[in-house]
Amino acid sequence: MRYSLSRRSFVAVSAVLPLFSRLVVAAERRLQIGVTLHPYYSFVSNIVGDAADVVPLIPAGFNPHAYEPRAEDIRRLGTLDVVVLNGIGHDDFAERMIAASDRPLMPTIEANRDVPLLAAVGGASSRMGNSRMVAGQVVNSHTFLSITGAIQQIQTIAHELAGLDPDNAATYTKNARAYAQRLRKIKAAALSELKTMPGNSFRVATIHGAYDYLLREFGLDVTAVVEPAHGIEPSPSQLAKTIDAIKALDVKVIFSELDFPAPYVETIERETGIRLYPLSHIIYGEYTPEKFEVEIARNFATVVRAIREQSGQQDGVVR
């Protein structure tokens, strides 16, 4: 009898032990969240704090505009629980990587699901009769280059992560709200440097079609985009037409790229006499939680400086 009880206990313990240990491992295992671009690394890191790990899909130093997935990057995907996607044109490689990985049905978070998207406009801009819009369905993918677009995505990501990891849901919500508050203060501080905004005659152009969302925060519309398409340099004849168009439109400021200067950009500055102000695309360098805050603050400061210098405002006063 004693023998039979011990044996029964042994069998019961043997059956339960693996289940128990699996539960313990599951409880101890932190959520592994994949991200495709630097701003999403900052967003997710600030949302999860110490409660989960954030894993970049692209190693630091690669340009996401021209990234081709490598075998080791695809292999790393197998360790992830969920991937946060831009999803509207800046990380289309991610879906192909997931499809080729060990987990082709891995959950994804569409960060831009609730963001009011702007139409993509290439060439010398639709406002110059060169529309490249396709029934309004091709959208500008740079929602992460504005504070409003960033906060909307942070809210969506926090909500989705809370659903995937209910134990940490309250932490994610609290962290997301605190992070959004900090971002709002960056915007408010930058705008407080301006006394007033210039009128409709203050026209701006950008080299890369990435800053429409950022300039919307100032009530500015982008009059011309120099690149004929996302990440594509203009041909000499396109460049000549663009220079003529910029002169004809009386553009006051051109926003260029901080991280990939191109010789043709200097040609535009020389030929038009219009000053260039470099903005960060926030997709280069090391992945850090504070990267987005630092670089978006610098972008806001640059736009404020451009407005003050080129609209005749000094010390916040219109002259």
Binding site: G87, G89, E95, R96, E110, L117, Q137
Partner: peptide, 13 residues
């Protein structure tokens, strides 16, 4: 109204 349009080059699941 706002609408979400995923990238046209994606092969959505």
């Amino acid at each position: 109204t706002i609408r979400y349009d995923a990238s046209v080059t994606r092969d959505l699941r």
